[in-house]
């Protein structure tokens, strides 16, 4: 972000405040939803969806991923692919077990 003008930074400060408020609201929503005792599938979907939005806000604005260099994107895409492999392959093995 070097070379960014003082004026531009001042503008982003406003963005940070908006993001902060949204994060707070989303936190309250996710807690509120959990009180409703939805079915477990629905609850997981809603909670993870909200967490995903919050995560995107933090990564996108606080970590400046909205305007980052290509190199960082490629690194992260690679990481996400392997992250997915790590998430889904062990569990599919467990579900595909012969002993089940």
């Amino acid at each position: 972000m070097e070379g960014t003008s003082v004026e531009a930074v001042r503008k982003t400060v406003r963005t940070y405040i908006i993001v902060f408020v949204s994060l707070m609201v989303l936190t309250l929503i996710t807690v509120a939803v959990s009180v409703l005792h939805l079915s477990i599938g629905m609850a997981i979907a809603v909670a993870l969806f909200i967490a995903l939005i919050k995560g995107t806000l933090v990564a996108g604005y606080f970590m400046h991923l909205m305007s980052e260099k290509k190199l960082i994107y490629s690194t992260l895409i690679l990481t996400v692919i392997f992250f997915m492999a790590l998430m889904f392959l062990p569990i599919s093995h467990a579900l595909d077990n012969l002993t089940r």
Binding site: A85, S92, H93, N97, L98, T99
Partner: peptide, 24 residues
């Protein structure tokens, strides 16, 4: 390098792995 991340369970064929995952 890329592929090396998604072959690891060929060390685990004898853990009662079903055909779907073992084929993968």
């Amino acid at each position: 390098g890329f592929m090396s991340f998604i072959v690891w369970a060929h060390h685990m064929f004898l853990t009662g792995m079903g055909t779907t995952i073992s084929t993968f």
